[in-house]
C-alpha cells in the first residue's frame, strides 16, 4: 500500500473513531449541561446499546429478514437499541439522580457510580465475560480509492453519525423542547419561573444522550465485529476526554473534541506503539484539565468542589 492510500485509510479510521467519541461525548455534555453532573453510567448505556443491537440483529437474521429488508433492518436495529437505552437512561435518572438533586455532589456521583457498577456487572452476568461476535450484515463490499479499501459499512456508519449530530443540533436549536433544554441548562431557576417543567427537560436529556450513546454502541459493534460487557469503560474515558477537550456543556465542543481525540488516537497508532494509545488519551485529558479546564469551546467553568 502506498503512502496516499495509507493516509486515506487512516483518515477514514480517524473520522469513524472521532464520530463515535463525539456521539458518546454528546451524551456527557448534554447531561452535564443540564444537571452539572457526569453520568457515570453512560459508558454502560453505550454497551447496553451495543448488546441490544446484537440481539435484534441476530433475531432478524434468523428470520431471514436482513436479506429481504436491509434498510428496515438497520432502522429496527438502531431504533430499538436507541429506544431501549433511552428508557434505561430515564430509569437511571429516576433511581440515581432525581432523589439526590438537592443532596451533596459527592452523594450524586457515588450513586451514579453505583448504577454504573450495577449495570456493568449485570451485563457481565447476562452476556458473559468473553467477546461476542456481531453479525456481519454489510459484508465486505466496498470500493477503493487508490489502494485503500473502504467498506460501505464504514461509509454508512459515518453518514449515520453525521445525521444524528445534525438532528440533535436541529432539535436543540429549533424546537421548543430543545430550547427549553438549553434554557434549563443555562439557568434552572429562571427556566422554572417561565413555566418550564425542568423534571421533564431533564428526563428528555436523559433519553437523548443515552440514545446517542446506544447508536454509537451499535456502530462500534458493526465496525469492529465484536462487543464485550466492559468495553464501555475505555470509550467512556475517551468520550469524557473529548467532552472536556471541547468544553463540557457545549454541543459543538463535544463533536470537535471527539474528532480531535479520535484523530490523535489514530495518528498515534499509525506511527507509534499502539498499546500505548490509551495512555495518550489520558495524558491529553489531564493536560487539558490542567491547562484549560473550560476546554476549547467551553464557557467559563467554575472551579467549585464536590
Amino acid at each position: 500500500m502506498d503512502n496516499a492510500s495509507f493516509i486515506i485509510q487512516q483518515l477514514i479510521n480517524a473520522i469513524f473513531l472521532g464520530s463515535i467519541y463525539s456521539l458518546i461525548a454528546l451524551g456527557y455534555t448534554m447531561v452535564y449541561g443540564i444537571i452539572e453532573l457526569i453520568n457515570f453510567a453512560h459508558g454502560e448505556l453505550f454497551t447496553a446499546g451495543a448488546f441490544i443491537g446484537i440481539i435484534v440483529l441476530a433475531a432478524l437474521q434468523n428470520m431471514g429478514f436482513v436479506e429481504t429488508h436491509f434498510v428496515l433492518t438497520l432502522i429496527l436495529v438502531f431504533g430499538m437499541a436507541m429506544a431501549y437505552v433511552a428508557v434505561l437512561g430515564v430509569a437511571i435518572e429516576h433511581v440515581a439522580y432525581k432523589p439526590l438533586r438537592k443532596a451533596s455532589r459527592l452523594a450524586a456521583i457515588l450513586s451514579a457510580l453505583g448504577m454504573s457498577i450495577f449495570l456493568s456487572n449485570g451485563m457481565m452476568l447476562s452476556q458473559g465475560v468473553s467477546d461476542r461476535a456481531y453479525p456481519a450484515i454489510f459484508g465486505l463490499k466496498g470500493f477503493s480509492i487508490l489502494d485503500a479499501r473502504i467498506a460501505y459499512g464504514q461509509i454508512f456508519i459515518i453518514i449515520l453519525s453525521l445525521v444524528l449530530m445534525v438532528a440533535l443540533n436541529m432539535f436543540v436549536n429549533w424546537t421548543k423542547l430543545g430550547k427549553a433544554m438549553r434554557a434549563t441548562a443555562q439557568n434552572q431557576t429562571m427556566a422554572r419561573m417561565l413555566g418550564i417543567d425542568i423534571d421533564r427537560t431533564i428526563r428528555v436529556t436523559f433519553m437523548i444522550g443515552p440514545a446517542l450513546g446506544a447508536a454509537a454502541g451499535v456502530m462500534v459493534g458493526m465496525y469492529y465485529g465484536s462487543v464485550r460487557f466492559d468495553m464501555g469503560f475505555i470509550y467512556m474515558i475517551k468520550a469524557f476526554a473529548a467532552a472536556i477537550l471541547g468544553g463540557i456543556g457545549s454541543i459543538p465542543g463535544a463533536v470537535l473534541g471527539g474528532i480531535i481525540i479520535g484523530g490523535v488516537e489514530v495518528l498515534w497508532s499509525a506511527f507509534l506503539p499502539s498499546e500505548w494509545k490509551d495512555v495518550t488519551t489520558f495524558v491529553v485529558l489531564i493536560l487539558v484539565l490542567y491547562l484549560r479546564p473550560s476546554g476549547i469551546l467551553g464557557e467559563h467553568v467554575s472551579e467549585s468542589r464536590v
Binding site: 438549553r182 413555566g195 464557557e299
Partner: peptide
C-alpha cells in the same frame, strides 16, 4: 435579570412564551 446568556434575544423572548 437572569436572561439566558447563550440564547439569542429572540430565543429569550420565545422562552417567555413557553407555556
Amino acid at each position: 435579570r437572569q436572561i439566558f446568556p447563550r440564547m439569542t434575544t429572540l430565543e429569550n423572548l420565545e422562552m417567555g412564551a413557553y407555556l
